[in-house]
């Protein structure tokens, strides 16, 4: 099958610092691909490049055969490449449900003016978005807290809400930046199930994550980045056995690591 997303020779320089250096990899349809690497390796920058929030110094990103680098971020999102953020991936002051409804916007049939006047198409859209939001929130276990203000939710729910908002935008490929950060073991294993369920809905997933146990459990394939350079790519078993990876993570070769 043709890859859904292709990253080719992607390079990003900030002044003298090369945050991402000639990175290439393919993402296959409906797989879960994780990008891992030490702090500051350039993982989030790769996400920003794919979602077109920053322009590459060199190289390009292709989505379903079409070059998307250089397009506006909202255009890339409309094509189906949707990204969540490492830091705040919610609308703080809104209820969980309202946030998810807002994120449905690119599915709307009515124009903004139609929404203003409350046209028939707008009312249909509103009803559809409400139903779909309830479904997504239930699906991610947020049904009971959907009328809470987002910023009052505990960490685990926040991450789930971040994914719910992403799902609402109808992604073909969803980029999750550290979806398990700040979760305890229990929450993580539930979140892992959640991500798998999202994949079962037909969404391709690209993850950045530091939690190795979760990454090994969930990923079909893994790409390892160190100092902006791709140093390995393969299945979890291959990555676990890779000398370069062990070195990058520990700086020494002969220590056992918790991979």
């Amino acid at each position: 099958m043709a890859p859904i997303l292709q990253v080719k020779d992607l390079t990003k320089r900030y002044g003298g610092l090369t945050a991402v250096n000639e990175v290439s990899f393919d993402v296959e349809p409906n797989e879960i691909l994780s990008v891992i690497g030490p702090n500051g390796a350039g993982k989030s920058t790769i996400f920003k490049l794919i979602s077109s929030f920053v322009k590459p110094t060199r190289g390009e990103v292709t989505f379903n055969g079409e070059v998307i680098s250089g397009l506006a971020p909202h255009t890339v999102a409309r094509k189906g490449v949707v990204r969540t953020f490492q830091e705040t991936t919610i609308f703080k002051g809104m209820t969980a449900r309202d946030s998810v409804i807002v994120a449905h916007h690119l599915r709307s049939h009515a124009s903004l003016f139609g929404f203003y006047l409350g046209s028939a198409a707008a009312r249909r859209d509103e009803a559809d978005f409400g139903r779909s939001s309830d479904e997504i929130l239930d699906f991610l276990g947020l049904g009971a807290v959907k009328y809470e203000i987002a910023s009052n939710l505990p960490q685990g729910h926040l991450r789930a809400l971040g994914i719910a908002i992403g799902l609402a935008a109808n992604p073909k490929i969803l980029l999750l930046d550290e979806p398990f950060a700040g979760m305890n073991a229990d929450e993580t294993s539930r979140a892992v199930e959640m991500v798998r369920a999202v994949r079962d809905r037909g969404v391709t997933l690209l993850l950045v994550e530091h939690d190795m146990a979760a990454v090994m459990k969930i990923s079909d394939r893994i790409v390892v980045i160190n100092f902006g350079v791709k140093i390995a790519e393969g299945t979890p078993a291959e990555i676990r056995a890779n000398e370069k990876v062990i070195e990058a993570y520990l700086g020494v070769e002969d220590e056992t690591i918790g991979l």
Partner: peptide
């Protein structure tokens, strides 16, 4: 940022 990654112009 989140709004634009949800496709809002």
């Amino acid at each position: 940022d989140l709004a634009s990654s949800m496709g809002l112009n």
